[in-house]
Design a protein around this nucleic acid. Structure first.
Lengths: 112, 112
DNA sequence: CCAATACTTAGCTTATCAGCTAAGTTTCTC
DNA sequence: GAGAAACTTAGCTGATAAGCTAAGTATTGG
C-alpha cells in the first residue's frame, strides 16, 4: 500500500495460493480438466464451497472454466503462475547481490 | 484440506506474501535490517499494525528479529522463500510434462 | 531520577473468508 | 414433459484479518 509501486496482480495470486484446499484443487487441475462435482467429491466440500474456491482461483487467473451442457469444466492456466515465480526470482537476485556485496566487503578487509 | 498430504508450511508462506504491505516490508528488509519505527514510517501505518504484519512474516519464517536496547531489529530470511519457489517449480514441471505428452500424442496422430 | 523514545499489549471496529443449507435454474434423458 | 443431475444464487454463521486508539513497559540521555 503506497510503499511499492510495481505490482501486476500479485496479491490475488499469492492469496489464492495461500489456502491448502485451493492448492490441492489447482494441483488436480494441472493433471487435466475437471467438473465442479468432481472437485467437490475429491475435497469433500459442498458444491457452493468448492465454487467459492474456484472463484478465487479464477480471479487470480489460475483457472478458467466453460459451460458444457449442464456441467462446467474447469482447467488450469499454469502460465499465470509466472508473476509469482518472477517476483520470487527477483527477491532471490536482490539477496544474492547483497551476499556478493558482503563478500566483496570481506575481501577489502582481508589486507587490514 | 485432506486432499493434499504434502505440505511443509506453504500456507503461512503464501498467506504472508498475499498482502502488498507485507511484500513491501519484506522488499525493504531484503535491502538490510530495519527497526519497527522505520518500517512504520515507510508504510504510513501505526506501530501496532506494522507489528502485526511483521508477526505474520515471522510466522512464515520470512523475517526474524532481535531486541537491541529499546529498538527491535528485523531482518529478512530469504532462504525461507524456497518452499514457495520449489512448489511453483514443481507445478511448472507437471505442466511441462503434460505438454510433452500432448506433443507426443500429436506425433502419433501424424501418420493417421 | 525523569522525561522522552521505542516498543508492547489490550481491546475495539469493520470487512472478508470459509464453511454450510436451502432453494432456485438449466439441461439432459426417457 | 417430468424427473434427475449439475450447477447457481441467496443468505446464514463463526472465525480471522486489518486497521485503529489508548494505555502500559522498558531503555536511554541528561
Amino acid at each position: 500500500m503506497g510503499m511499492s509501486a510495481h505490482d501486476p496482480n500479485l496479491t490475488p495470486l499469492f492469496t489464492a495460493l495461500g489456502d491448502a484446499s485451493r492448492r490441492a484443487m489447482l494441483e488436480r487441475l494441472m493433471q487435466g480438466p475437471a467438473t465442479v462435482t468432481e472437485l467437490a467429491q475429491l475435497s469433500g466440500f459442498a458444491l457452493p464451497t468448492v465454487l467459492r474456491h474456484l472463484a478465487v482461483l479464477t480471479e487470480a487467473k489460475l483457472v478458467a472454466s466453460e459451460k458444457s451442457g449442464r456441467s462446467r469444466i474447469f482447467r488450469a492456466l499454469p502460465q499465470h503462475l509466472t508473476p509469482a515465480t518472477d517476483w520470487l526470482g527477483q527477491q532471490r537476485r536482490i539477496w544474492e547481490t547483497r551476499l556478493d556485496q558482503f563478500e566483496a566487503f570481506l575481501a577489502t578487509q582481508q589486507g587490514a
